Every structure is written in structure tokens, then in C-alpha cells.
Simulated scan of single mutants.
Amino acid sequence: MKMMIARTSAVLAALAFAGEAMAVEWNVSLWGKRRAFTEHVEKLAELVDQKTNGDFTLNLSYGGLSKNRENLDGISIGAFEMAQFCAGYHRDKNPSITVLELPFLGVSTLEQERDVSMAVYEHPAVQEDLARWNATLLMPSPLPQYNIVGVGEAPRALADFEGLTVRATGGIGSAMEAVGAVPQSMSATEVRQAMDSGVIKAASFAPHAHMSFGTIENANWWTTNLNPGTVNCPVVVNTDALEALSDEHRDALMGSVDEALDHYIEFYNEKTMAAWGPALEERGIEKVTFSDEEIASFKDKVAGPASEAWIEEMSERGLPAQELYDLVNEKLGQSN
């Protein structure tokens, strides 16, 4: 009898150990603080936990694991299993997805940004590009068109951007350069200090980032309709870690992406944009609106040359650049 009890206890202990061994924890490298930009990752963690009854956990870290410009490097060596980064931070490391940062692509909604990003992420050349970093693209962080907040005298015409130092990355930086501004590439967490110290006079961001990183606290003006483009900031996972997941855990993760993105877009549209207008009014920030003629001239000056230069450069790197550019335009045409 005692031997039977001992055997039963041993079996139960083994089962308990096996259950414990099946539990999986992933570390996720983000930056800044929880905000609209990270709501899909927060929702993803919540859904994965629910679907696996706590057996698969995403531990979200805001800056504790890596600098934002080094997140892709961290993924490549398995320092953490999931991370968010922006293509414009290191375009040489992820040239294929910089097609999504070209200026004046014509994206007007977060839903469009989501659809065109996912289409590009699924392209074999893009997947091969990110595979160099042992990274699998999971989902985008759809952002609205960027506009500029600045200090000092407000620009009254596009010509007034001549010589203005402005934080702008990717295609937005190219667009600003075309009107005589001096684009500066820096991570979001560096921008407020750079503005306060006079290193830059203006910053290009989506509304949530202007609020989250404090650029509106000392600003005098912002542009309402410049809309030169946006940045592409994917969430990626370490490919080895993804392949090591059980079928149940992998299904829980991949099957939660759409719901996480739905939540993100709803949150951004209903909460972030609702807070943006009042935040500007409370601080007395002047709204600068350019004429339709100036915006059309700006687009004509920037869009064509930028896309042609991108296609030429990326083709020389061996990427199917024209094909990727055509894919973006095709998807946007279908969603209009």
C-alpha cells in the first residue's frame, strides 16, 4: 500500500513537473512607456495569456532589455524573443520594408497602413531580408500621417522650412530635405531633450508620439496638413523561438494578431485622436495650414524622385524593388 502511494505521488510529481516545463515565457523589448504605439503588443500579451491559461507569457519591457535602435540586433542573437523597431532607425539592416516609408504614398487611414504593411511583410524577398537577422515579421504598428511640431516662428509657407533643423527619419526626412530643411535622425526618446537644448527646432511625429514624448510641451506651432508620409515600425519575433513553440502556443500567438491589431486601431482612432486636438488647444499651439497649391507642389517635388531613387538603389542591392513598389500601389489602389 505504501509502495502504491509512493508510486502515485511520483507520477503526480512527474506530471506537475511536465506541466511546469511546458510553460513558456518570452521577453519583449519595447521602449518609452505604454502608449497607443504599443497597445497591440499589450493586447497580444493579454490574448496569448488567456488562450493558453497562463502557460505562455509575454513579458513586456519598456527599455529594460535593449535600446530601440538595437532591438533587431537583440532579436538576431536571441537576447529576447520579440521586439518592436522602426525601419528608418537602420534602413541598411531592413532595406526591403523601407518601401513603406517612401513619402506621399497616399495612405490615408490606419486600416490602409495595416493592409499594405501586411502585404509587404508576406513578400518572399522581405521575409528573406529579415531572415538575415533571424527575425520573422509578426505585425505592423500602423501610424497616421506625420506632421511637424516646432518652436520659434511658425512657417507661413513651405519656403520657410529652409534651414530648419527637424527630427525626421526615412522618407519624411527626404521630403523635408526637398524643401530646404535639415533633417536629423534620432530615436524618439532623444527628441524632447534635443528640442529643449536647441539641437533641433522641430520634430516630425505621429500625434501619439508628440504627446508621449513631450514635444508639445514647449512648442509654438504644428502643421495640420503637411502629411508627407509615416514610418513603418514592425513587431518581429526570433525565428528560432517561434519554431520552438508547441503547436498550441504558436496558434495562440499567430491567431491573436488580427484581434490585437483591431484593438490597436480602435484605440488610436477613438482615444488618441480624441485627445490630440484638446492637447494642442490647452497649450495654445498655433495650427499652420498650407494651401492646396503648396501641398501639391511639395508632393510633385518629392514623391516621384524619391520613389525612383529608392527603386534604383534597392535594385542595385538585389531586391525586387519595382515589384515591391508596385505591390504597395496595388494594395492602396484596392483599398481606395
Rank of each mutant, 00 (worst) to 15 (best):
G170Q: 06
V179Q: 01
Q184V: 15
S185G: 01
G171S: 12
T169V: 13
G180K: 11
A159N: 09
A178T: 10
V182S: 13
A181P: 07
G180V: 15
A175S: 11
V179H: 03
E162M: 05
L158K: 05
M176D: 03
F161T: 13
V179M: 09
A168I: 06
E177F: 03
S174C: 03
V166I: 15
E162W: 01
A181S: 10
L158I: 11
R167E: 14
A175Y: 13
T189N: 12
A159L: 06
A188Y: 14
E177Q: 14
E162K: 10
A157G: 05
S185H: 12
D160G: 06
T169C: 10
T169H: 11
L164N: 00
S185C: 00
Q184Y: 13
V179E: 04
L164E: 08
I172H: 01
M176V: 06
G171M: 11
A178N: 03
L158S: 07
L158D: 08
F161E: 06
S174D: 14
M176H: 05
I172A: 07
T169A: 14
G173K: 08
G163W: 05
S187N: 10
S187H: 09
A157E: 10
A157P: 00
M176Q: 05
G171R: 05
S174I: 01
G171F: 12
F161P: 04
V179W: 02
D160R: 02
G173Y: 05
E177L: 07
S187T: 15
T169R: 13
V182N: 13
G180C: 07
D160M: 00
A175W: 05
F161G: 00
M176S: 03
D160W: 02
A188G: 15
T169S: 13
R167L: 00
I172P: 01
D160N: 07
L158R: 08
G173W: 00
P183K: 09
Q184R: 14
D160C: 03
G170N: 08
L164M: 15
M176W: 10
A168M: 04
S174H: 07
R167C: 09
G180N: 10
A157Q: 09
A188W: 08
G163L: 02
S187L: 12
L164H: 01
L158G: 08
A188N: 10
R167V: 13
A181Q: 06
V166H: 04
E177R: 11
A178W: 06
E177H: 10
A181R: 13
G171E: 11
G173R: 03
T165K: 14
S174F: 02
M186I: 14
A157T: 12
L164Y: 02
I172M: 09
V182G: 00
V166D: 05
G170M: 08
A168S: 12
